[in-house]
Design a protein around this nucleic acid. Structure first.
Length: 876
RNA sequence: GGGCGGUUAGCUCAGCUGGUAGAGCAUCGGUUUUACACGCCGGGUGUCAGAGGUUCAAGCCCUCUACCGCCCA
């Protein structure tokens, strides 16, 4: 018999060490390109090669894995495709930081090529680490199809897509105001800018009129240093305070230039004094105003956020914040500051490094969204793509309906190089997949490629169809596209999900996925966000070492209510580690008792009622679990399985079975039920379920190759189920009565029972064997009148009375007191219920069924209390 | 400014289409009974944020308020 001698406690380290290798070696996760069942595919959201995975990844990766494993067991043709992301800005920053720390060098000291070699090295080691972590989690990924967002293949596809979009006029180059991070030294898209509320100061500055320096207009600003680049003062054209001044000139303090006062509808009359300074080179609103009024744009802040341009010598080269102070000091000494006040406003910060971003005019590449967005909106509106939970649709629509063109160029080295070439002779711009040999216009050969790379999210947007080989019209693409599910966090709905939908529709000619599963954030056990600075971040590998990947996966699954954040508590993980041990020991019990002669199928004629009861319960469980799965309520499925195993199979069925171990039929049910449990559990806890399954089945097949349990008519036994439920009820009541009266748990005592329901009485009579064992009964008698017997402790439940004989008179007095308390409590409840039934509209308006039920309950309470009253009389 | 969540047992959270509340952990009492002390048996614990409304009936639906959190501009 395989699997004998299971260790007394479960060792997750041992079990989780080797199964992954064997699954992989047996090609369990590698489907053929040609389908053998209904295709079901999920593309892994590629983790960044910035280091190692955090606990949030464990969630985003585990949930689809659970879905994938079940689908596979249900016979779908499943692909779960892995990959990693080059994560341009994040990775480059990390390598730069390391370089600085280790050698003191900047990337410029190495040059582009040498630096990129360094990043590639980093990528390889990070990828190795990530893949190792993923395997530890047990994810059923097909590594033979692994992809990288910056592989040669991806570079070819990205160039092709770029050239195509350029050809369609959807990619263009333009000079606009964009956000730039002075620290990361690149421009950013609007999405990469995070607005944070900042306590600042609003300074009111006097701008003297050219004609009369004694008169001035007061403007309010949070950024005084930008006044050096002012080209006008703007007021609302209908503002009575200022409209007469329109057309006049201001002598700009410090700079000494003359600038006009213009009228513009975009001026907010409520802000400050209603007159605003116009700095078109450094403010997006001012930029627009300047365009309308054909004003010059004077750049006074450079790419390093230092002062530059036609400004007084003393400010040149100062950092923007240092200059702010200098300007304020100088204005104050000139008596030009009217006042300053505390002011809370939103300031854009770089998502990566939290530096205050600088609006900045430059020539960049943009993706036009006007034609790409509408089909993407329509696809979601037409339910071709569902969001789970549904509420995220609104968020998606809100953003998509207000979408702006996307700035896709970045001044970085690590990423997809933009396939644009500039002729040095005639300045012609050439966009092409391959580097052109000569300029088609002037035949010049001095061509220089654009130094910029693409926003990382550009290649990410192409991920679902390019990973499947859209570029080669591969069989994989035809089989697995559109993919089934995209599982990801809400934080990247705009960055990623929306863009995948746009690109997928445009190039893949179909939605990239059918369902978007949005999961929440992992927080610590106090509900706080995890972060390195708070030192409350947990490493998934630590948890796996401590409690096992199975326990971690189960914890995440049972807590992951779609769209809700998870407060991850270590004590809870420990609880599911204990659950694994529980399963192990239940299996140990089964394995110890198997004799090898168990019939392979359930013989309904030979099995006991207890056997039928567990089969019936199992069948109900299977039905509910499948419903939960289909509604993406994995937390519910996990919860159902947990309670079935612990509260039904272990707590009751294994105990029942101890009375029937000589029966091969019972042993076969013991075994069969366990195997079904392991199958149900496998998606959640792949390691322990496989280990036990193999020990029992003798390595005939892997668990993932077996069929996921489904409801079967074969296991419908309502009568036996009801009988055993009665038994459970009476056992529980007896145990309670014993405990309440401090009767030693292990002491076998005589037990007397009385039952008013003939059917239930039959049930119990039939199963006294189990009752005696579970209630520690010396001898059980079911009698018609308890009063005639020895006095004893009473327990009363629906239809049943229990009597445990007293040993002495102290017992009697104690019992009397308890019964009086209970009698009073119940009497109050009955009174309340009768009042409800008598007065009000309840009796008149509630549905008959509800009232009937209510009356039934009331009647039961009345009867129960009558019994208690009678007992009190007997004992008095 | 616009929008979205949350507020349920000491803690962290479930509670699907309204019929008087559940889990895990914690806690208390008992217990080493032939799978498991990572166990077993049993117990206690809640004006379901507040106010109002709809309804025979509200944790669940509607309105308002308060507090906490998030997103967009």
């Amino acid at each position: 018999m395989p699997g004998k001698n299971m260790e007394k406690s479960y060792d997750h380290l041992q079990t989780e060490s080797d199964w992954y290798r064997r699954w992989e070696e047996n090609g369990l996760f590698t489907p053929a390109s040609e389908p053998t069942g209904i295709p079901f595919s999920i593309i892994l959201p590629p983790p960044n090669v910035t280091g190692s995975l955090h606990i949030g990844h464990a969630l985003t990766l585990s949930l689809p894995d659970i879905i994938v494993r079940r689908k596979k067991m249900q016979g779908f043709h499943v692909l779960w495709l892995p990959g990693v992301d080059h994560a341009g800005i994040a990775t480059q920053m990390m390598v730069e930081k390391n370089l600085k720390k280790e050698t003191g060098q900047a990337k410029e000291d190495l040059g582009r090529e040498a630096f990129l070699r360094l990043v590639w090295e980093w990528k390889h080691s990070s990828e190795k680490q990530i893949v190792g972590q993923i395997k530890k989690l047990g994810l059923a990924l097909d590594w033979s199809r692994m992809k990288f967002t910056l592989s040669d293949e991806m570079q070819r596809v990205v160039r092709r897509v770029f050239v195509a979009l350029y050809g369609e006029g959807k990619i263009y180059q333009g000079t606009y105001m964009v956000n730039r991070c002075p620290s990361c030294k690149t421009v950013l898209s609007d999405l990469e800018v995070e607005h944070q509320e900042v306590q600042g100061r609003l300074t009111y500055i006097r701008y003297p009129l050219s004609r009369d320096a004694k008169r001035w207009v007061v403007v309010a600003t949070t950024r005084p240093e930008t006044m050096l680049g002012d080209v006008a003062v703007a007021v609302h054209p209908r503002d009575p305070r200022y409209k007469k001044l329109i057309g006049q000139e201001i002598r700009l303090p410090l700079a000494g230039r003359a600038i006009p006062i213009v009228g513009d509808e975009d001026v907010d009359r409520e802000f400050g004094t209603g007159a605003v300074k116009v700095t078109p080179a450094h403010d997006p609103v001012d930029f627009k105003i300047a365009l309308k009024h054909r004003l010059e744009k004077i750049v006074v802040i450079d790419e390093q956020a230092r002062m530059t341009g036609p400004i007084p010598e003393k400010y040149a080269g100062l950092d923007r914040f240092a200059c702010r102070q200098a300007v304020l000091d100088d204005l104050r000494s000139l008596g030009l500051i009217e006042k300053a006040e505390e002011y809370t406003h939103n300031v854009g910060h770089c998502q990566r490094c939290e530096t205050v971003v600088e609006p900045h005019i430059s020539k960049q590449w943009f993706l036009k969204t006007a034609e790409l967005a509408p089909p993407a909106i329509a696809a979601v509106r037409g339910n071709e793509i569902a969001f789970i939970p549904d509420k995220w649709k609104k968020v998606y629509f809100n953003w998509m309906e207000n979408i702006q063109d996307w700035c896709i160029s970045r001044q970085l080295w690590w990423g997809h190089r933009i396939p644009a070439f500039y002729c040095q002779e005639c300045q012609e711009v050439l966009v092409s997949e391959a580097e052109p040999e000569r300029c088609p216009r002037c035949a010049g050969t001095r061509l220089v490629q654009d130094p910029d790379v693409l926003d990382t999210w550009f290649s990410s947007a192409l991920w679902p169809f390019t990973t499947l080989g859209w570029q080669d019209d591969s069989p994989d693409f035809r089989t697995f596209y559109p993919t089934s599910i995209m599982a990801t966090g809400f934080d990247i709905i705009f960055f990623w999900v929306a863009r995948m939908i746009m690109m997928g529709l445009h190039f893949g000619k179909a939605v990239p996925f059918r369902e978007v599963l949005i999961n929440g954030l992992i927080r610590d056990e106090k509900g706080q966000k995890m972060s390195k600075t708070k030192n409350n971040a947990v490493d998934p590998l630590d948890i796996i070492r401590e409690s096992g990947a199975d326990a971690l996966r189960f914890t995440l699954a049972i807590q992951a209510v779609p769209g809700m954040d998870i407060a991850l508590s270590l004590s809870r993980i420990k609880g599911y580690k204990a659950f694994a041990n529980k399963i192990w020991n239940a299996s140990r019990f089964v394995v110890m008792n198997l004799q090898g002669d168990e019939p392979p199928v359930v013989d309904a004629a030979r099995v006991s009622d207890a056997d039928k009861w567990i089969l019936h319960s199992l069948n109900l469980l299977v039905q509910k679990v499948n419903e939960s799965f289909d509604g993406y309520r994995l937390y519910e499925a996990a919860d159902l399985i947990y309670h079935f195993i612990w509260d039904e199979y272990c707590d009751w069925y294994l105990e029942f079975s101890k009375s029937d171990l000589e029966s091969p039929a019972t042993r076969s049910v013991l075994r069969l039920t366990l195997l079904r449990i392991l199958q149900l559990l496998h998606p959640f806890m792949p390691f322990i379920s496989e280990e036990i399954y193999q020990r029992i089945r003798g390595e005939k097949e892997f668990l993932i190759q077996t069929e996921f349990p489904a409801f079967t008519r074969e296991f419908v036994f309502p009568e036996a189920h009801a009988a055993v439920e009665t038994l459970k009820k009476v056992v529980a009541e007896t145990r309670k009565t014993r405990t309440e009266n401090r009767i030693e748990p292990n002491k076998k005592i005589p037990i007397f029972l009385k039952c008013d329901a003939p059917l239930e009485r039959q049930h119990l009579e039939k199963h006294l064997k189990y009752f005696d064992f579970l209630s520690r009964s010396l001898k059980t008698e079911i009698v018609s009148d308890l009063a005639v017997l020895a006095k004893g402790f009473r327990g009363v439940s629906q239809n049943w009375e229990i009597l445990l004989p007293f040993v002495d008179d102290q017992d009697r007095r104690q019992e009397l007191q308890r019964l009086r308390g209970e009698h009073d409590k119940l009497a109050r409840l009955i009174e309340q219920m009768e009042a409800k039934l008598a007065g009000g509209d309840f009796a008149a308006k509630a549905p008959a069924e509800v009232i009937l039920n209510f009356k039934k309950n009331l009647q039961e309470y009345i009867e129960k209390n009558a019994k208690i009253g009678k007992t009190i009389d007997d004992l008095s």
